[in-house]
């Protein structure tokens, strides 16, 4: 598929749109449908499209697997870390109300951070799985 001109041009113009849409789903999840899970999957779909059209090696240069491993762990760390921070601020585990000036502001911040962690982990784990499967077929 790497030599198909039409596919290359179309996917080049599509990938930025997919990434912007993923970011929209990530940060607009409080107001509309969506959230970390969907955003992570959509974001990884952009990279997978890139890998399918331009080849696996090019995609692994865009996002090296070491960065993916760090991102996957960092996502879980952010989520669990928010819980630990709320513990230290005197609340229950994952009770975001203590994070901000007011209860509502704290909840908002907590949900945003937690969704970010979810998105990062889902994005990188999907890519790790895809690279692991697709990389085995390489000669």
């Amino acid at each position: 598929m790497t030599n198909n001109l039409i596919l290359r041009v179309v996917s080049k113009s599509l990938i930025p749109l997919i990434i912007v849409f993923a970011l929209y789903v990530q940060f607009h999840g409080d107001y509309g449908p969506g959230g970390g899970f969907q955003a992570g999957v959509i974001m990884s779909a952009a990279i997978i499209l890139y890998a399918l059209v331009f080849g696996l090696d090019a995609a692994e240069q865009v996002i090296p697997s070491t960065i993916l491993r760090i991102l996957a762990s960092l996502g879980v760390l952010i989520y669990a870390g928010v819980g630990v921070v709320t513990l230290f601020l005197g609340g229950n585990y994952l009770d975001y109300s203590v994070l901000g000036e007011t209860r509502v502001a704290g909840q908002h911040l907590g949900i945003l951070l937690v969704e970010l962690g979810v998105g990062m982990t889902v994005f990188s784990v999907m890519l790790i799985i895809f690279f692991a499967f697709a990389g085995r077929g390489r000669p």
Binding site: G29, D30, Y31, G32, G35, V104, I111, V114
Partner: peptide, 17 residues
């Protein structure tokens, strides 16, 4: 309580965090 208009997100991330 959360200031998040999407109830699904509020339940998913906060009440059922």
């Amino acid at each position: 309580e959360t200031g998040v208009p999407n109830v699904v997100t509020a339940v998913l991330a906060s009440y059922r965090g």
